[in-house]
Design a protein around this nucleic acid. Structure first.
Length: 107
DNA sequence: GTGTTGACAATCA
DNA sequence: CTGATTGCCAACA
């Protein structure tokens, strides 16, 4: 029965990481978008999951609705955007992604 | 069980 | 751009 194995991630966390991992190169999703895409929780829960387990996924593709990357990682995120060809509105701080073109809705 | 905090979002000043 | 305010949901003390 289902209790011998210990899961490192909760079902919700696994779904969040799965969606982030599914974001194509050059595109991004906002915290609220992912929450809405999953149909549960909220943007804060997505942020918490990424802050805790996001070490194995492309967290830099998950940004605020304004198009700004997570705090404390602007430089890291910017390096990835330039490397992956993500459409930017501002290539220097405050770093802003062009959500109009970079936003990914699962398609 | 209550209150605070948080890798949020939207609106107003 | 900064700051304040409200709404949202879950983790944590």
């Amino acid at each position: 029965m289902p209790d011998s194995d210990s899961q490192a991630l909760d079902d919700y966390s696994a779904r969040v990481l799965d969606v982030v991992d599914a974001i194509p190169v050059g595109q991004v999703m906002s915290y609220g978008d992912i929450a809405e895409y999953l149909g549960s929780g909220g943007p804060r829960q997505v942020g918490r999951v990424l802050a805790t387990y996001g070490g194995g996924v492309a967290w830099w593709r998950v940004i605020h609705s304004d198009g700004t990357p997570a705090p404390g990682h602007e430089a890291v995120a910017l390096a990835h955007y330039l490397s992956e060809g993500t459409p930017l509105r501002s290539a220097r701080p405050p770093v802003r992604v062009d959500m109009r073109n970079a936003r990914w809705a699962g398609r």
